[in-house]
Design a protein around this nucleic acid. Structure first.
Lengths: 219, 219
DNA sequence: GCATATTTGTCCGTATGTATA
DNA sequence: CTATACATACGGACAAATATG
């Protein structure tokens, strides 16, 4: 496993880091929705910390792009717009295909297997987690901690969008088969064919995620 | 001009942001050296801020990777090691060549002209700034704000290494001609040739910067 | 190895300014 | 427009960890 799926830097034992971790969880779990303001005082009591500590935690979350910070208006859970989604897929299209030739197909296969198991139990959040990890493996094959860190924030932002999806099955299930097919192609050594499939995958996903964030904006 | 050369996100009017900007300046100017501890109390009085505000500024600088934060030991100006340099050039080699075919050679030419003017006045820091901007233009041609932000931190870390260089002329001057030659090649449409030159440039630079950080470590 | 000084981590009370109902 | 809620920022306090002699 390369790095965490949700936090780029190592956590650290400080209380500010703990609070940041907890808030990250609540955001990525969908409990704290996009656009929702995060109030220092309330969160301070909820997490048994002082307002100063919560403010430090906010700075950490801002680093991960999970919250936005406007002067005198405080922080709010990040809201993605179409430009954000476009940028996310520019990055994915730039990085992931480069990893295809370097990644270990066995590790990819394990992740696909985990996804299939989650799907069998109707655990669509588990399916999406495995999917994200699949693509994280592609990037980590590039061998750059910096790209890894960046990609962790990309995946966290995608989860921000996923949290607004109603029908998890319709949304996540189709990509499972596509990942499985990529593994097959890689095992047969057909890298070029796998790359074509990956690009198609990302193109479709961009459209779908873009739609999700656009309807939320207008709703 | 794409974004700033030293700060990824927009500054904001808050005092913590102001303090962070000031510290960033002092670090990249070389006044605060690699490894030097930054003490909250001292910096609070120096910058007319409270300790809490300075601590928030530290979190912001940590986001830019300019300082490291160890529990109960405080923050210190980041020290690059050989692995950091390796990673920096993995990223540069992955991103910059992709920008060659997209960048506007005219804009590159302007930056080279500025570098030549600085060189004529013996302003080697100005030369290095122009050099960094040259390569930033390559990345910003990719059209991704996220890659832009990431690259700003990459360039800031390189300056961290540059700050330890004694003979600025020997270090920075050779790259000026290489940048000029790349512009010539691009203007003639010889993109493949320019890419070869760029890769050679980055390979040489990696070795040179790696040497700089390794001697500091042993000294 | 110990005692002491320094520094960080954290909390609290409070004052001020800004945005919003 | 005023009132209220909230963020911003300060300064003092103390415990805990670390560095120092």
């Amino acid at each position: 496993m390369p790095t965490s799926l949700i936090s780029p830097a190592d956590p650290g034992p400080g209380l500010a880091e703990q609070v940041a971790r907890a808030l990250r969880e609540r955001i990525l779990e969908g409990e704290l929705r996009s656009g929702q303001p995060l109030r220092e005082a309330a969160l301070a009591t909820e997490h048994d910390a002082s307002r100063n500590t919560v403010r430090e935690a906010f700075r950490l979350l801002a680093r991960d792009r999970l919250v936005t910070h406007e002067a005198h208006k405080g922080v709010a859970v990040r809201t993605l717009d179409e430009d954000d989604v476009r940028d996310i897929y520019v990055v994915r299209l730039a990085l992931e295909p480069r990893g295809l030739a370097l990644v270990d197909p066995g590790a990819l296969g394990d992740v696909v297997a985990a996804a299939q198991e989650a799907a069998a139990q109707g655990d669509w959040r588990g399916v999406s987690t495995a999917d994200l990890r699949f693509h994280q493996l592609l990037v980590s094959a590039l061998g750059s901690p910096r790209f890894d860190d960046m990609f962790v924030t990309v995946l966290a932002e995608l989860r921000l969008a996923f949290a607004q999806v109603a029908d998890g099955r319709r949304f996540h299930e189709p990509y499972l088969e596509r990942n499985a097919q990529m593994v097959d192609l890689l095992r047969r050594g057909e890298v070029a064919e796998a790359e074509r499939e990956l690009v198609a995958y990302l193109t479709d996903a961009q459209e779908q995620v873009g739609f999700v964030v656009s309807v939320r904006r207008s709703g």
